[in-house]
Design a binder for these strands. Structure first.
Lengths: 185, 185
DNA sequence: AACCCTGGCTAATGTCATTAGCTTTACGGC
DNA sequence: GCCGTAAAGCTAATGACATTAGCCAGGGTT
């Protein structure tokens, strides 16, 4: 019996691919085992259980999003940068809707996720730096951006917009609204 | 063996109470059966299975929210009404966070949920009526309201706001932003 | 009084996560 | 090249679930 040559990150890779293809509900150890060519209990050599796998997947997604955001914002500043960030958020979720559902909403509360969550927050705060907001004002603004992006994107990914009106237009309108509300210097 | 006197709505009641107390993940037929004093398979006499129970629960929550929204908006109009609606949304989710997670995001796509979802949409559109928006403009505006309310409330319920800044203040800011963006006549 | 539908039950099956304990591979040190 | 050992795989077993099949009582209807 030749070894499969698995590793923790290979397991997470498989989980990510599985979720992308079949949705978050399809994330079972049995399915990951099948995909990696291994018996289910063998996965425990690389991952503590389904719970940990979910956490690791969450970190992956969080980091992946942060990377996209970073490149999206590069070269922009002020309102432009905020718009780029918000559009990058939505685009990510549209590209990987199931994967987005695997992203924890409360990364700062889990020590394992805090680092990845903190980095993402950093990018958002950096994007807002041009506005010269005081610390707590920046936090409020960052929260507004996140609420808007998450709200729209999760509804869109969940099929929540049932009517035929153009979604790009709705999102543009929403992005403009939140940008307009940012305190001018 | 005396009858338990169960009914479909009693099963949904039990499911709702269970979710409120123990979270959406705790919604299992076994737990509902335990709570109603019946063996698990007996539930199938009232509900087609876990999937249908989830749908029925979704309808319940949808209707419950719609009712709250209706009373919240009563007696207000224009910006006041929109603010009341958005605050009622958040308040509902804060009062019943687990229950909110049971609410389907795409009610219009499921025939069983479409009626309840349509009524909720009606309330939102009625709240916007004072602005005199054309049909499709009203749809875009309603989507913005929903994205904002859902985004903020789901993040708050999910523990997504890890920093100590006051959440009421963030939400007020967000509500003002979206209201300010509504087209004036 | 016989009937039969309804709502309950038990038993069985299949999927999944998890744990325990065994085997074998591959590699480091001799 | 050889050997010991830790890591990586395996099978078997357990326990929670959902779901299906099929049995039984009981209460209202005829």
């Amino acid at each position: 019996m030749p070894r499969a040559g698995l590793s923790t990150s290979a397991v997470v890779d498989a989980a990510l691919a599985l979720v992308d293809e079949a949705g978050l509900a399809a994330l079972t150890l049995a399915a990951v085992a099948g995909r990696t060519g291994v018996a289910t209990p063998s996965l425990y050599k690389h991952v503590a259980g389904l719970g940990e796998l979910r956490t690791l997947l969450g970190i992956r997604v969080l980091e992946d999003m942060t990377e996209r955001f970073t490149t999206a914002v590069l070269g922009h500043s002020g309102d432009d940068a905020v718009a780029a960030l918000l559009h990058a958020y939505r685009d990510y979720v549209r590209a990987h809707p199931a994967r987005y559902a695997a992203m924890p909403l409360d990364p700062l509360h889990d020590p394992a996720l805090a680092a990845a969550g903190g980095k993402q927050l950093e990018v958002v705060l950096a994007t807002l730096r041009a506005y010269g907001l005081a610390d707590s004002a920046a936090v409020h603004a960052a929260r507004c951006l996140r609420a808007v992006a998450h709200g729209f994107a999760s509804l869109e990914a969940g099929g929540g917009f049932g009517l035929p009106e153009d979604l790009d237009q709705t999102y543009d309108q929403l992005v403009r609204a939140v940008i307009a509300s940012l305190p001018r210097t």
